[in-house]
């Protein structure tokens, strides 16, 4: 019996999500086996925070004023490092070619990479946040829940754009260099929103003061998730 439009649509969404999860699980298994990328990103993050810790003059600028910027610059660099590896995995034995021949949609491939990248960056952030608290003696416990919400919102934006650009540059020379050059301008809106919202939270101001910045982060996420999903097929097809 032929399927109705709704049923076909439901099956299409189901297939897309199932294939995406298959790809994400494979990426995470590969990362778990090698651990090179996550360890590099964690060590890099610790080093950046250490450099900032020793490179600032606490008598000139109060820690609380600098801390949000330091946190987000560190997260941004760590995200770029993580995103660089997203499609590097697929260069081995030209696995990307196999993925493109397979019957999965390009959207599945994008979403699978997005989910794996989100989990990867989340792990790095989970390590970086306690280090940040330790180095800069900033109390985050009373604002932990809203702070995690800000981090989640900004990370989704970073990773949505980063996954797209990571696919775009993978076949170019100097891909590791190209990615930050392309990405950093696109990071400015979520970076601004995240720094402003974090500053207000760490300063003990009510969450309502950061609502505008949270809306900006959410709007950025929705806009770039949709745009990246639409544009992704054009970045991987020859």
């Amino acid at each position: 019996m032929p399927l109705g439009r709704g049923e076909r649509g439901g099956r299409l969404v189901g297939d897309t999500l199932r294939h995406a999860w298959t790809i994400a699980r494979k990426d995470l298994l590969l990362e778990f086996r090698t651990r090179t990328a996550v360890l590099s990103a964690v060590v890099f993050t610790a080093l950046v925070l250490t450099v900032f810790n020793f490179g600032r003059d606490p008598t000139a600028v109060a820690t609380i004023d600098l801390a949000p910027s330091i946190l987000w610059v560190t997260f941004s660099f760590a995200a770029i490092l993580a995103l660089n590896r997203a499609f590097q995995l697929e260069l081995e034995n030209e696995a990307l070619e196999g993925l493109l021949v397979s019957p999965i949609s390009r959207t599945s491939l994008y979403l699978g990479k997005l989910v794996a990248n989100l989990m990867f960056v989340a792990v790095v952030e989970c390590v970086a946040l306690p280090l940040f608290v330790l180095f800069f003696d900033v109390s985050v416990w009373r604002v932990l829940a809203p702070l995690i919400a800000v981090i989640a919102l900004a990370t989704v934006g970073f990773v949505a754009v980063g996954t797209l650009f990571s696919a775009m540059v993978i076949r170019t020379r100097f891909a590791e260099l190209m990615l930050p050059v392309l990405l950093l301008p696109f990071f400015i809106p979520p970076l601004t929103g995240a720094v402003q919202a974090t500053a207000r939270l760490l300063d003990g101001r009510p969450l309502s003061e950061a609502a505008g910045w949270l809306r900006l982060l959410a709007a950025y996420d929705v806009a770039f998730l949709v745009l990246a999903t639409l544009l992704f097929p054009h970045t991987v097809d020859e």
């Binding site: 494979k26 298994l29 590969l30 086996r33 090698t34 995995l89 081995e92 034995n93 030209e94 696995a95 070619e97 196999g98």
Partner: peptide, 10 residues
Amino acid sequence: GHQSHLYGHL
């Protein structure tokens, strides 16, 4: 194709 499309660490 020319390459195996297989992941070395799996």
